[in-house]
Design a protein around this nucleic acid. Structure first.
Length: 561
RNA sequence: UACCCCGUAGUGUAAUGGUAACACUACUGAUUUUGAUUCAGUCAUUCAAGGUUCGAGUCCUUGCGGGGUAGCCA
């Protein structure tokens, strides 16, 4: 039972670069950063980046990883997101220590850099409309052409930029652009916008600024200001690297962080787009960012995934520049693996079928010992009440069972886990022919689930004593989408949503040890899966999420018929 | 159609010029008081074609295929 799985010496390309930089003496300390924009909740894709950046800061020494909010767009960013992001990173098991930063903390310095660029003739104020700028930029196959304002004097640029900052102009009237190369094959080098006018209140700087820096200008310089050595980002920023380096070069900055790109996480049956997730939340298709169906860190956590499982997953997916699609079964394996190690076992019946043990004393009851964890004797045992009336799972009984069905059927004997051998004597149905109750007998000699005469029973099923049972609502969570790659499917993403991604069972019956357990408590319901107590739980009733089902080779075999 | 990046089992990653390895998935089988867990096994000559070399998944060339890029988003 390993904590954090074995770490082989296999190094990914980024760690190789870092090793080389250390070996060559280029760096003696490793500094990374995780730079989210606070415009939404973090998702499993971010976990990859978090595990990478913060993981590096744990593996190397000296090293540190900064948490820096990339908050340069006041119209999309909110404090709620800043808080949720911090909570999620901490929950994943990482700590930024004192290194909590905001790009907005650098607005003054950034503004100074912009002025420097103007003074050195590397930036100018453009007064074209957004539409015109787009036209002038050219296309992927044709070069752009210079704006008529490209050659304004330094003095005029300085004056205009100062007045932009003071709020003398309306949004869109002017922008500050870098003066690079309108014919570059790299669109990012065709005089990218550095500053735009936004007369909006910023979540941290309030109304201090009327101009806000763009990502490209902000990011690399923020890295530089913080002494970041390796700035790790996803593949779509590859074309931005020349620009990232251009700023550092032109401004002759004392330190030169290196941007390295890796492939973002692609996961089957999942969509990572924050924009789309926000839409799900706002349209009410899910109940908030932490809905257990969501691929957000908070949703996954609420569903019962463990941070350890996510870390193991992030370790297993590797790190390359190949933009692949990871099978979600690898994530599911990682949770099962971890929960199998740590989750105590209990019994709970999701879809109850009443069983009466006719040869058991009317008011009799007794306690049987149940093992808390079969793989861990240290976990001990607990007493579970057994009595004349019990519940079993509806699908553990078949009136006309197929050959390989090991469970209960008319005249069949099975083991009630940790209790007795039980034989079905009579099937009671209602007017519609639905089975409503089973009348059974038990073998008093088989207490504990062992027969005195050594006869074998193939099936073992779980059960709960009716009068001791704790009622609960259980939510079965399934994949959010019906197709492997929702982006590749025809139609809107919404059309690919799995309508059965959540199924609520209102009549579940659990063994009494569940009574009084706290929100967040995780356990395995034997034979069913791993479960977690949901925050919707009240004094009146438990609400429980199924994190993930157990592997089920019977269901698989039955499904093939 | 311009530029950049990427092509190794179904999937994700190893192999750093010397016999293609690991994990997941799937399928067999064994054990099992969870049809779970555990254990054992099966599944690829590395996109293609040329070239360099005693030797190429690895280096070179040319194709082919996939992804990214034309926000005053990040």
């Amino acid at each position: 039972m390993s904590e954090e799985t074995e770490d082989e010496v296999k190094k990914d390309f980024i760690r190789e670069i870092i090793d080389a930089d250390l070996a060559s003496g280029k760096h003696s300390e490793i500094v990374t950063r995780f730079p989210p924009e606070p415009n939404g909740y973090l998702h499993i894709g971010h976990a990859k980046s978090i595990c990478l950046n913060f993981g590096l800061s744990k593996e190397y020494s000296p090293a540190r990883c900064h948490l820096r909010f990339d908050d340069t767009n006041p119209s999309k960013e909110e404090t709620e997101y800043v808080e949720s992001i911090q909570e999620d990173v901490r929950w994943l098991g990482f700590d930024w220590g004192k290194n909590l930063f905001f790009a907005s903390d650098y607005f003054d310095q950034l503004h100074g850099f912009a002025v420097q660029l103007i003074e050195s003739g590397h930036a100018y104020v453009d007064s074209l409309s957004a539409e015109e700028i787009r036209t002038y930029r050219g296309t992927l196959t044709e070069p752009g052409k210079p704006s008529p304002h490209r050659d304004r004097s330094v003095e005029e640029n300085l004056d205009l930029f100062a007045r932009m900052a003071k709020g003398e102009f309306a949004e869109g009237e002017h922008v500050l652009r870098a003066k690079i190369d309108m014919a570059s094959p790299n669109m990012n080098m065709r005089d990218p916008t550095l500053y735009r006018i936004r007369k909006e209140s910023h979540h941290r700087t309030g109304n201090k600024w009327c101009v806000y820096p763009m990502y490209d200008f902000t990011h690399g310089l923020s890295d530089m200001l913080e002494g970041v050595t390796h700035s790790l980002c996803t593949l779509e920023f590859e074309h931005h690297r020349p620009l990232y380096e251009w700023f550092l070069k032109v401004l002759k900055t004392p330190c030169q962080p290196r941007q390295i790109e890796f492939a973002r996480l692609g996961l089957t049956y999942t969509v990572m787009s924050k924009r789309f997730l926000l839409k799900l939340v706002e349209s009410g298709k899910v109940n908030g960012w932490d809905d257990p169906r969501m691929p957000t860190i908070s949703g996954i956590r609420r569903r019962g995934y463990t941070a350890e499982a996510i870390r193991r997953f992030c370790h297993r997916i590797g790190l390359t520049k190949y933009p692949g699609m990871t099978d979600i079964s690898l994530l599911e394996f990682s949770v099962r693996e971890h929960l199998n190690e740590v989750a105590p076992r209990v019994m709970g019946v999701l879809k109850p079928l009443k069983v009466v043990i006719t040869n058991y004393p009317e008011d009799g009851e007794e306690m049987v010992d149940a093992v808390n964890h079969p793989g861990d004797p240290e976990a001990g045992k607990r007493p579970v009440p057994f009595s004349r009336e019990l519940y079993i799972e509806q699908n553990d009984f078949m009136e006309d069972p197929p050959r390989k069905f090991f469970r209960l059927g008319p005249g069949r004997e099975v083991r009630f886990r940790y209790a007795y051998y039980v034989t079905c004597q009579e099937v009671i149905k209602d007017d519609h022919g639905t089975v409503t109750e089973l009348r059974c007998t038990y073998d008093p000699e088989s207490r504990g689930g062992k027969s005195a005469d050594g006869r074998k029973v193939k099936g073992t099923i779980h059960w709960v004593s009716a009068k001791h049972a704790v009622p609960a609502t259980v939510r079965l969570i399934d994949r959010l989408f019906t197709v492997e790659d929702p982006h590749a499917a025809d139609g809107e993403l919404e059309d690919q949503l799995n309508p059965d991604a959540i199924e609520e069972l209102m009549d579940c019956q659990l063994e009494p040890s569940l009574r009084g357990q706290k929100v967040g408590y995780q356990c395995q319901f034997e034979r069913l899966g791993y479960f977690c107590i949901d925050p919707d739980t009240t004094e009146d009733g438990l609400v429980i999420n199924r994190t993930i089902g157990l592997r089920d080779s019977w269901a698989k075999q039955a499904g093939k018929r």
